[in-house]
Every structure is written in C-alpha cells, then in structure tokens.
Design a protein around this nucleic acid. Structure first.
Lengths: 301, 301
DNA sequence: CCCGACTGCTGCATTTCTTGCATCATAGCG
DNA sequence: CGCTATGATGCAAGAAATGCAGCAGTCGGG
C-alpha cells in the first residue's frame, strides 16, 4: 500500500530508535529516510521526533500520531478483509492475547472449531498477563484479549464477561478431596501453591485474605499454572485455578473442588477489544463464537 | 498532508462521479488522475470503481474503502487538533447537525459561550432533520448531532439525552391560553398547525392520536418551526414546539403551555456522535459543554 | 585526552516516478 | 449520423525521491 509508505517509515523509525538503523532495515539510505521524516514533519506542522545524541525518539505529538498510524493500519487491514469477504473467500488473521487459563482446552477447541469452517483464517496466540494484554490492545499489537480480572480497563471494551470462581486443585488422595466445597481456611492451613502477583487468581486470593488472620504461606509461588497443576501430584499441596483452565481432559489422579463463595468471591473472565475499534470480519466472528462458547459454559455451571 | 493525496483523489472522484471532472476540479489532467486510480486499484488488489459509460461509481469494495478514507481523514484532524492543543492554542472546527429547535436561542448561546473561551475554534451548523443528521454522522460529514426523537440509531452513539415535552404555542389572547396545562383534545379541537412528518414533534403527535377518535386536522403543515411560531400571531391557531426552541426571548404576544403528559408523552432530545469514533478535542469539549447545559436546563424544568 | 563509532543533517548527481499532451475506443444523446 | 462526453494509453518533459559523500556533534573506551 503505497499511500502510507511515509507512515510505515515513521513507525519503523520509532521502533528502531534511529533513522539510520531503520533505513538499513528497509534497504534505503539514511539520507532518504531522513528527508522523508523532515518533509512529513514540515507538512504536519511540527516535529514528531526528539533528536537525541544517540538517535531519535517520538515526542508527545509523535506518540499521538503513532496511535493514529496504528489505528489506520489496522483499519485498512479490516477493510481489505471485508473486501476479500465480498469475493467469497474468508481470509484473515486473528491475534489474541490471553492468559494461561485458556490454553489447556478452551482456546485449542475454539480455534479448531473456527478453522474447520474457515480454513483461510490464521491465528496468533500470545500468552500475556492481564496488564500486558491490555497494553497490547492499546498498541494494536493484538486484536482480541481474554483476561481474568483485568486491571486498568481504560482502553478495554468488554465484549463478553463470565464469572469464574476460584477452585482448588488437589490430588485425589489429598485429605481435603473428600469435601465437595472447601473453606479457604482449610486450604490455607494445608500446604499450598499460588500463582505470582501478576495473575487474577492471586489477586482474588489476596483480596480474600486481606485483613483476615489467615494469610498466604505458599510452599511455591509460580508463573505457570500448568506447573502448579502438575505439582499437586508430587506433593500433598493445594493449588488454585479457575474452571475454564481445567477442561474435561484433566488428569484422573487430581480433582477440582469449589471454594466456598463466601470466602473467595468469583472473578470475571473478560473477552475484550480496543475501545472504539471496528474489528476485522474474521476477528469479530471469532469473538462472537468465543462469547457464545463462554455463555454455554457458564450456563453449564 | 501528502501521504493521503491518493485517498483524497479517490474521495473526490467518487464525489464528482467522473475522473475527468474531478481532475479539472483539482487542476490536474484526467490522465494523471486516471493513473493514480489504476495504480491504487492494482495495489489494493481489485477495482474500486465501476466504469460506466457516463463516468465512474464506487463499487461495493469502494464503498467500504470510502468509509475507511473518511474515518482516516477525520481521525487525522483529531490528531492535529490534539497536537495543536499541546502547544497551548486551542484550535479546531466543530461541525454540528441539528434540528431547528436548537436554533433560536440554545445553540447561539452555547456557541458564543464556547468561543468566548476558545476564540480559535470555528463552527459549522447544518440544519438537518433527524434522519439526515444521522446519515451525516455516518459519512463523517458532521461531528456532532443534536436531534429530537431520532429514527435509526444504528451508528448513533448517545452522548446526552434529555426529555422534552411537546408544548403548545399560542397567542396571548387565545381562548386556551387561560389554562396552565392543556389537554390534547382541546388543542386539536381548535385550529392548529403542525410540523411535517420528518420532525420528531409530529411523530409524537401522530403517536398520541393513533387509534384515538381525535385526529390531526391542521390548517397548516410546515417545515419551519419559526414560521409556525410566528403564525399564531396572525391567526388564532395552536402550534406545537419543544421548550428548548422557546427561549427567554420569546415574543411577549405569545405564550407557551404544557400539554398534559397523559396525552402526549415527552420525547428525547439527544446529543450524539458517530459510534465508536474518537472526537477531536474541540468537538469533545463542546459536546461536554452542551451536555451540561442541557442538564441544567432539564433540572430547571 | 583523544580516537573511533555512532548519530542526524545537507549539497549534488542520478534514478525513478508523476504529470501533461495527444490520441484512441467506446457509448449515449439529439 | 454526427457530437460530445467518458476512461484508457504511448510518449516526452518535469518533478520528486534516492544514493553518495561529507559535515558537525556526542558518547564510550583505551
């Protein structure tokens, strides 16, 4: 797309942090690129970059412009997708930032279901914590985000929200496995493992224990829900997860028990997009499919 | 802005309906413009225009692209406004599509109040009926719309809504002027004038009389609220208007009477924008000011 | 302290792209 | 049947972008 060559140049310069470096990457000389930038700044009515001794950096105006550029690029992609859609073929690329919980069963199942109908659509799945996911929405790095208990919510437009209670994961022969519903104090009296502070499950646990006598005293704090899930098979500990991450294919040697909602309130699993943006056809359809899948899932509970 | 020259060309060709005609308007030859279009279509991956014996017309893909172009143009304007805002000066241009009711007092007052603080901001006010106003929002021809009882509401994002009851306007010496609140049947028994079908006031009157024995039997049906207002001074008729169109500067020879809310339900006066769009700074500020003015106004009633 | 490596910037020659002119084929209108 | 529109195209002149070489400035390390 020729008409936005200059905009792409600006973006690449901003990413590279130096005109010459960006110029090399795109196989032109620094001087040519430099002049493009200068010409643009003149037309724009003011500088876009700060000139530093070691390169360039976007100034405030540049940041605003950058946002516009990203939006324009993504919107053009959407238009091209829609046009391709007119001629029958459904093509496109869906980029999702999601938290770990969606990995084991939910996303694989949904993506394959979608691709069965639209084989022309490709997917990129980025594993991100909730704060990162929202940042990537803002920077148009990702189209869709699925996060548990998001933090900022400024540019986040909720497409679908379902409640997800925090559950305990334990070995089948764990003493607590007998009860159908567990009290939080029992879980915390036993040895337990918790996710690190970036995660929504941990956030809910922190909220539940704040100001109470019982506190977290984890034998392990980890980044990986899969690790923690497997760990209950090796040592008699209690792990914490949300149901969506514990699909039907759960190891038969472990069990899942709900925690009394009086102790830990359920969190929200959100599907969202960048506020105000019109999603490409493929992405919008997928978002819709995921939403109704979540709907059924929450009805089942 | 050089980088969207091609896009502007496409827009102008679409508007002119012919490449040569558009070329003349922008002082280049038809061949040059023709080649720009062809080059773009090649890059885009398909034709944008239908070639007709009498000129060109956007095809479906072109329509989609056109929407994108207009969105980009308006978003770039927004960015430039925000950047200008950084350097202290508040500049910009606010385009409003509004129904007639806002004309006599409300908009003049609000615009002058705004300009007193920000003299760099210019205004364009377009008088439109409610359907036109919404279409102009969709086509980015206007930034803000103020309409009474809008019809479609698909691309319309409500910024502010206030109730406006339908009122009767009559000469001070009209027999009905004695009562503080009028019944609709009394108004319709007397000679009356009503707005034409495009207007929200008429819509509410139609709703109120539908299926009732009393029907509209206007001596005059008109497009102009000002005309109808003045007319009550010349013949003993009842006119219908909403309070916001009847500011403090009302002619002392006429009076306004509320109509019993049991007879005609109040309509909604809406301030709105194109759904999902980020408004330019100046426009957003003005929308905010107007909203709070409406707030006070409805508190007063 | 100085030298090298990096930065952005600029004058000049070259290449690439855009534009204007003349022309063609086509289709509607009177 | 002309007349006058339309969009498309070949060719040459003009405009714009690019590459090259070199400038001044800053930073880091010997």
């Amino acid at each position: 797309m020729r008409h936005m060559r200059t905009l792409l140049m600006i973006r690449d310069v901003a990413n590279a942090g130096s005109i010459r470096r960006a110029a090399e990457d795109m196989n032109i000389t620094g001087s040519a690129l430099n002049r493009q930038i200068q010409k643009f700044e003149e037309e724009f009515g003011g500088p876009i970059f700060e000139r530093l001794p070691r390169g360039v950096r976007l100034n405030t105006a540049g940041e605003l412009l950058m946002h516009h550029i990203q939006a324009q690029l993504s919107d053009l992609e959407r238009v091209r997708g829609q046009v391709a859609d007119l001629s029958g073929e459904r093509r496109g690329h869906v980029t999702i930032a999601c938290s770990q919980a969606l990995n084991p069963t939910f996303l694989p199942r949904e993506i394959s279901r979608y691709r069965a109908e639209h084989p022309g659509v490709r997917f990129t799945v980025r594993l991100r914590d909730r704060a990162q996911a929202e940042r990537e929405l803002s920077s148009f790095t990702t189209d869709l985000a699925m996060v548990f208990e998001p933090v900022y919510l400024v540019d986040f437009e909720v497409i679908k929200a379902v409640e997800q209670p925090v559950c305990a994961v334990l070995a089948r022969d764990h003493p607590l496995a007998a009860a159908a519903v567990l009290r939080l104090r029992d879980c915390l009296s036993a040895p337990h493992v918790v996710p690190s502070r970036d995660y929504g499950v941990r956030h809910l646990l922190d909220m539940a224990t704040r100001g109470r006598s019982l506190g977290l005293d984890p034998v392990m704090e980890a980044d990986s829900f899969e690790l923690m899930r497997q760990y209950v098979l090796y040592e008699q500990v209690v792990g914490f997860q949300i149901p969506i991450g514990l699909g039907p294919g759960l190891d038969p040697r472990m069990v899942v028990r709900r925690i009394d909602p009086r102790d830990v309130e359920p969190g929200l699993l959100l599907v969202g997009q960048m506020r105000g943006r019109t999603l490409p056809v493929a992405t919008a359809k997928f978002a819709q499919q995921v939403s109704s899948a979540l709907e059924e899932l929450s009805d089942a509970v």
